[in-house]
Structure formats: C-alpha cells, structure tokens
Design a protein around this nucleic acid. Sequence first.
DNA 1: ATGGTTGCTTAGCAA
Length: 255
Amino acid sequence: MKIVTWNVNSIRAREERLLAWLKKEKPDVLCLQELKVTNEKFPYDLITEAGYYSAVHGQPTYNGVAILSLTEPEDVVCGIQDDEDDPQARLIEATVNGARIINGYFPNGKEVGSDKYEYKLRWMQRLSDHMERTTSPDKDVVLVGDFNVAPDDSDVADPNQWAGSVLCYPDTRKAYEKFLSWGFTDVFRKHNPDGGVHTWWDYRRLAFQRNNGLRIDLVLATKSMAERCVAASVDRDERKGDKPSDHAPVIVEFS
DNA sequence: ATGGTTGCTTAGCAA
C-alpha cells in the first residue's frame, strides 16, 4: 500500500498537477493539506474521474485537508474530537484497507511567542490527547501531514538560519517528540537516516534553486505498520516547473 | 529588522 502526503497549497491552483501526478504515481492513499477550498467547491468530479474516493474537510480561504483513496474510506472523522471550538479545518482521518489514516495540517505558528505559536503548541497537545483517547499504539495507525516541524537539524539545509523559527524551536520539537514517545516511528527517517532530504522550500528568496529546504512533511507509523514499511522517498521533481506547490509529495510504501 | 513569492480575494492575511 502506497501512502502519500502532499501539501498542495490550494487544490484549485494545483488541479492539473494533482491529476497528472495521480495518474503517474497511482498511490493507494493521498493525504492533502492546504486545500484552501470549501467542501462545496471541492473538485469531487475530477477526483472521481481519476478513480479516487474523496473524504474532505474544507473551509474558505485557509487550511483544509482531504484523504483520497482507491478503496472507499471508512469511519471518516473531521477535526480533533474535544471541547475546544476550533473553526480551523486541520485534521481528517479515515480507515483505508484496515489502517487508520490520520492526516493533519499542523499550525505554522508564525513566530515564537505569538498567539499563533501558542495555538500551534496547544493544537499539537490536543492532537496528542486525541490519540490517547481514540486509538492505541498497538493498532495499525499512520499519522501523516504537514507537521510544520523539522524534527532535528539534519532535516534543515541551513540550521543556523532556521534556529529560532517556529519550525525548529525546542518547544516545537518537544511537542513533536510526544508523538514518538506515544508509539510512533518516523518511517521516512528509518529509510533515510542521514538526513539532508527536504520536503518544503519557501517560494521566497529562490529557496528551491538554492536548495534551502526543510523536511516538515512527515509520515509516522505505529510499530505494526513501521515493520511493514519497505520504502520512503520525496518526489522532488514535483517542486520544479510551472506553478508548483511549495511542498513536494512524500511517498511511503507498506508491504 | 526587513524582504522576498504565492494564493485567496480584491486589501490584507497567511505561509
């Protein structure tokens, strides 16, 4: 089973690329973030024509997540199931081929010390609590998405430049590591232990041309799934050419 | 400290 996570930065702006990529790669599951579209305006017909089901959690202008899959997604749940009244569409999960797929668009956090950063840390804690409540590490669970976290400096082309950023700050990494101690493995890391592979390059400052990237799009798996993980890669070519997303797809295969 | 670019929506926000 091939599972992919891809922050498309607006699904409507990326329609052509998305359909070409689906046709070429034929993933079993494609988790998308930053749809920037409402459920009403989601291009269901195009996805159906491409042979995929769509489970969608959208909102106007910002955020938005979806799970596309070749077989029908079951038990779809949108949003973190807790008491907080959160209008931001950042989480969707579904069971596909017996595995629980959890797809998150973690908050960026803007700047350390800002209200948005407080929200980022709170959202990550809420997701940790959600995992505790709704599933367990002895099940087949995969948590994927744009984490807006570079787990360590080997995931950052220029660690000095990014040291104080919300993607690398120690509190950010501490919040991320709670998912590992809960029972998740970073399966991309397992297959690329040396680091230096990136998934996001800022549109600004010619970051891609200068190879100034970070690995912030991640695939975490519970033990039973991690044991079946046979390959992991980044489709760096998808960041090239006309009108790319600023993120590249991360592809992980399970036997 | 600021700027650089992209997308949604059309002035300003978010990333």
